[in-house]
Structures are given as C-alpha cells and as structure tokens.
C-alpha cells in the first residue's frame, strides 16, 4: 500500500472521526455528570436525523442550516426525558436506568417506524459529487468536510461550555463529588437536566450532520450507540475531551484497519481496544483527568 493511500485513508478516517467525536462527547457528558449509561443515545441521534429530514423536506433549506433545529428540538426532548422519567428513578438505581434507556430507545425506534415506516430515505445535497483536491493526489469529499467542520466547531463550543460556564463548572463538580455538590449550593437536578439535554442535543446535531453523507431508517442509530460506548471507555469514563479524542482516533484506526487488513476487521479492532482498555486501563487511554 502506498504512503499516499495511507494518508488518504487517514484523512477520510479523521472526517468520519469528527462525527464520532460529537456523538461520543454527548454520551460522555451524560455519563460524567449523571452516571447514566444511556442506551438511547443512538436513538436520539436517529431522531435528530429524522427531525432534519422533515425540516429540510418542509422548508427546502440546506441540511447544513437545519442542524440548529435538530439541536433545539432534541434539547427540549432531553429535558423532558430527564424531568419526566429519569429524575423519578430512585438514586443509585443503575439497573433501572439501563432498562429505562433501553425501553426509551425501543419506543423512539418503533414510534419512528410507525410514523415514517421501516423504509429508508436519502437526502441529496447536491454537494455529494464534489471532491476537493488537496494536492499530492489526495482529495476529500465536500459534504464530509462541511459536516466535519460544523461538528468540530460545536465540539469546541461544548468543551468551552463545560470548562467555562457556571453550569459547566457545576456539572464537573457533580461529576467529581456527587455528595458534596449540593452542599456547595448547586441545584443538582437543574444541572443534571441541562447536561442531559445538552448531551441529547449533541447526539441530535451529530445525526443532522451525518444525514447528508448517509441514509436514514429507524434503527440507524444502533451502531452509533455501540461506538459511543467505545469512545467513552477509551476516553476515560466521562471525560468529554477524552471522548472527542477517542472519536477521532477511532475514525482513523477504522479507516487504516480497512485499508491494511480489510473492512471486516475494523469493528473487531474497535472492540478489542474497548475490552483491552476496560481490562488494563479502566481510566481510559488519555489519562485519568476529567474535563
């Protein structure tokens, strides 16, 4: 395999990884602040795709301008799920949380199937055939680049939200010492609700950005739930910077694995990494610090 082919595969992997990163960050935020293992994350992403699909169909506006709609609707949806369902669970009921999110995921998927049918849909942006030459025989596909750029900007915004805002600081405080946070005057319910809603919105936006380069059907999110868990574990449980980095790494590793060993090994490598990190470095491969 030529060096040029490897660089090309790494670039394409990085573009995919940018979308993975956004999905992973959302899940990491939810897990970090609330210790909720959210099995509905992929379903939330799927909802973001359908919202964008409907919004684009109704207005004819480019999906790249419609991602805020998906983000906003999913933010409200996340807040409703938190106040309506999650906050009602007794503290420490981990198993119930898992069952609840699995149930929620099934309900989302089946509801979409009832409304939209099991059939798939495509959204053509017109950009799909545009390839940008980078020199040295390298090129990138335009819709992937646009999606990557938006995902990167939102990821940075998410990072600044957690690092700089009062809500973000409160969220980190809850993540570090759940028992002490309320003693410091933090409204735990409110901060958790915001964190869950922001994490849900991130999944929705990631879905909106994936739509122009993929297709949608009711169970499309399932594979991303799995990948998001891999990212959260690789990045160190609950670290959103770690999850973002893990997303990029995962994209590149998958692409290079496909190139050198064959595509059927890509998922195997993902989950071998997952199991190895869980077993030998449970704090994640990118340090133990939480951002």
């Amino acid at each position: 395999m030529t060096a040029q082919a490897a660089v090309q595969a790494a670039i394409n992997g990085l573009l995919t990884g940018g979308l993975y990163a956004l999905v992973g960050m959302g899940l990491a935020l939810i897990f970090g602040v609330m210790r909720i293992v959210n099995f509905a994350h992929g379903a939330f992403m799927m909802l973001g795709m359908y919202i964008t699909f409907v919004a684009v169909g109704a207005t004819g506006v480019s999906p790249y301008l419609m991602f805020p709609v998906a983000g906003l609707v999913m933010f409200v949806f996340g807040a409703l799920v938190y106040y309506g369902l999650l906050s009602r669970l007794p503290a420490g009921a981990d198993f119930m949380q898992i069952l609840l999110t699995i149930g929620l995921s099934l309900i989302c998927t089946d509801a979409v199937q009832l409304v939209f049918g099991a059939d798939y849909h495509l959204l053509n942006t017109g950009l799909a055939s545009t390839n940008l030459a980078l020199g040295y025989g390298l090129s990138v596909n335009a819709p992937w680049v646009v999606s990557f750029a938006i995902a990167a900007a939102i990821s940075v915004g998410l990072y600044l939200f957690v690092l700089r805002t009062m809500t973000g600081r409160a969220a980190r405080a809850i993540a570090q010492t759940p028992a002490a946070a309320p003693l410091m005057g933090i409204n735990v319910h409110r901060v958790q609700a915001i964190s869950f809603a922001v994490g849900t919105a991130a999944a929705g936006v990631a879905g909106a950005l994936l739509l122009p380069v993929f297709y949608l059907y009711p169970t499309v999110g399932d594979q991303f739930t799995e990948k998001a868990f891999v990212m959260v574990v690789l990045g160190g449980m609950g670290s959103i910077v770690g999850a973002a980095t893990a997303g990029l790494v995962l994209g590149v590793v998958e692409s290079l694995t496909s190139l050198y060993w064959g595509n059927q090994w890509a998922l195997v490598v993902d989950f071998v990494l997952f199991v190895l990190v869980l077993s030998f470095k449970p704090g994640g491969i990118f340090g133990t610090e939480r951002a």
Partner: peptide, 20 residues
Amino acid sequence: NEAYQASAPDYKALLQRVKA
C-alpha cells in the same frame, strides 16, 4: 476477496484496498 460490515457510512478505505 474482501468482506465488509454492512450498513456503514464509510467504505472508502475498503475501496482503496480493492483499487490497489
């Protein structure tokens, strides 16, 4: 003779491998 995982968004590396 290349197998792939169905329903993934990105097969470009797989196709590069076939091209090689």
